[in-house]
Design a protein around this nucleic acid. Structure first.
Lengths: 240, 240
DNA sequence: TCCGTTCAGGTCAGCGCGACACTAACACCA
DNA sequence: TGGTGTTAGTGTCGCGCTGACCTGAACGGA
């Protein structure tokens, strides 16, 4: 029935890395994503999202995981389905339907990517300036992923995915400021986070700096069913 | 590359129809969705979501529209992509990946469905009791669609899709009460809707009943870009 | 010892929302 | 014709969340 049609997966992986501004000084974090340079037609030489074909016996998310690891070496712990793109002429060489997954990774994991001639991190908000036009409709896909991150993702998810096991509230706030692109009041941010129940305090503190040490916190996953349904990001039972 | 794999589309169409409670009295509206009885294996005799195969030259949404019209006669004006289900053994007869679309339709449009031996409306919250277990993983798909409707859809969209061109606030409130399954305070509902800017008052009123006539309102679409991105339901440029 | 910096917590005003009382405008009926 | 019932629509109050700002706590460094 539905033949002569290829099913692919792509992934939009977002990481907060130091800004690659050529000038010095500016040490701010910026959203980056890994891109792969195409070596074959169509769009040979252009940069594209990591991805590949789905094999008959693997889950869609497994295909995304596998192709991501094959091309970039990244192995994120959690992938979320973003959208399925299937316009008839997305690819000039035939009908390709792409199920796109997205994930957030920490900077240490992001460092696992073997940067090379054909793999690189690119600043999500300046793709055009840094790598030129993306292959296929991948620029549109990235835009949609960024919109989802900025409008739909909560404290716990961002903390858990962008920071380590434990973190200070200042670190969590810094991550949020980088994602949202605006300054947040430390006191109000603290209250807001505490009220959300997304983090819990640990006994430890982070010392060493020339000021009062900060308490360390840990992300606490939503109790899975407390909201009576599917939380939007993490912790939804993976759908088939 | 990615062969031996079928791509299908399914649709979850939601309409508010009078409750089919056998007993008298209860005239409340209930969420219903159209189901189609399968005539072939697998799952012959079981009820399933309307859907079918994607042909090589049509958009995914067009395939959803076409198969929905072929099986039920429904032609909703707008379809929204819900999720793509692709677990390896969803279908016992081979690998099938289903891109699921969803839409809300008004009762008059819903009446266009030619009810028969193999097509019927079923109450969304009592599928098991009324039609037994659905084919494939369609019950899971319906659950996810209901969750999305109840938690993600705003005033304007519900008004526009479930009601006519103009409507009273009482009608809009009734629709929301039916969707959410709980009573809403008329005064607070009015203020909340007004503040959202999702509706605008018209000059007309609806008279005829034995009480003060109610002003008619009209749904106003979000200004498409006011939020600087993709509004969640209606009015997002259809993605590829 | 003093000082600068950051952590941590508190206060206060404004806003949105739920609960509830009240007025307005029609149809119906005695 | 005027009273009555019913629903439309408005006003008010209190609570909780949020932004803006202030104060004390705890460190390293001069």
């Amino acid at each position: 029935m539905g033949a002569s049609l290829e099913l692919a997966v792509s992934t939009v992986i977002l990481a907060l890395l130091p800004g690659t501004t050529a000038g010095c000084g500016d040490e701010t974090l910026q959203l980056h994503l890994p891109l792969v340079r195409r070596t074959r037609e169509p769009f040979a030489g252009r940069w594209a999202l990591p991805g590949g074909w789905v094999t008959p016996d693997e889950r869609l998310s497994s295909a995304a995981r596998r192709t991501l690891a094959e091309t970039t070496g990244l192995r994120p712990s959690y992938l979320e389905q973003l959208y399925t793109f299937g316009a008839p002429h997305r690819s000039p060489t035939g009908r390709v339907v792409s199920v796109v997954y997205t994930a957030l990774v920490r900077a240490p994991e992001a460092a696992a990517v073997e940067i090379g001639e054909n793999v690189r991190w690119a600043p999500a908000d300046r793709l055009m300036e840094t790598v030129g036009e993306l292959a296929f409709d991948h620029a549109e896909i990235v835009d949609y992923a960024l919109w989802r991150l900025r409008t739909k993702v909560g404290y716990a998810a961002i903390a858990q995915h962008f920071l380590g096991e434990t973190f200070t509230l200042a670190e969590l706030r810094g991550v949020h400021e980088a994602v949202l692109g605006k300054h947040l009041d430390p006191a109000n941010f603290r209250r807001s986070v505490a009220a959300s129940g997304a983090v819990e305090a640990t006994d430890e503190v982070r010392s060493g700096a020339a000021h009062r040490p900060a308490r360390l916190y840990r992300a606490v996953l939503p109790p899975g069913g407390a909201t009576g349904g599917y939380p939007p990001w993490q912790s939804r039972p993976e759908l088939g």
